[in-house]
Amino acid sequence: MEKINSSERFEKPAVLKAEHLVKYFYEPEKFKVLKGVSFEVKQGEFLSIIGKSGCGKSTLLYILSTMDTDYEGKLTIRDELLTGKSQNELSRFRNEHLGFVFQFHYLLPEFTALKNVMMPGLKLGKYSAAEVEERAMYKLKLVGMDAYAHKHASRLSGGQQQRVAIARALVNDPAIIMGDEPTGNLDKANSQRVFDIFRSLAEENSQTIITVTHDSDFANGSDRIIEMEDGNIVGTHFPKSV
């Protein structure tokens, strides 16, 4: 695998900037989940966020994903300040610039794998339906799922569904791909495949990967690890430069 050192990494521009993010939970009682989290992520960086359950790492990811808008602080992605934007603007932004992979695969069960992958592309409306289909097919090939393109999502195994979900996250060529325990529900072999796909996306396409994970193998294969505890960042490691 190609060697990237930290100096190279810092030359690349920051694609995501989080400034002093604070988040409260109100149920069952008021509780400060994030206590002022700030960090930057560079383009093409493969970042893992780790920490114990309840440390706020998933909460942080959903703020970064723009789906959670109830927070204090500032979130900037691709030099665009997203804090305070309307839901409609945010969904448009997500559609174009962000891709998601979740622990549970969340494909639309009534549709084929191909249709699932095409969906965000059709929504974006940048390309014709035929072009979107071609691109979706290409992404499916990228994750090794092109043979199953016309199978219904509900007929696929967990690992296959997760790979289709990754293809869906990629279809609009987003700047950032976010994963919430993308390998959490997968066996060793499938976890490795998902990791390899992420790795190559970061290195070959310069796409940024941000994942929350419990999987230490997965985290140790990334460029940088942010460790969280009690709503704060308590450590940053660069596993590959060690």
């Binding site: 789906m67 969904s91 448009r92 559609n95 979740f102 969906m119 974006l124």
Partner: peptide, 16 residues
């Protein structure tokens, strides 16, 4: 619900 959540996560707006 799950489908709606995933559609919204992938960029579908409320009006969609």
């Amino acid at each position: 619900m799950k489908d709606i959540a995933i559609l919204k996560a992938t960029g579908f707006a409320g009006k969609d």
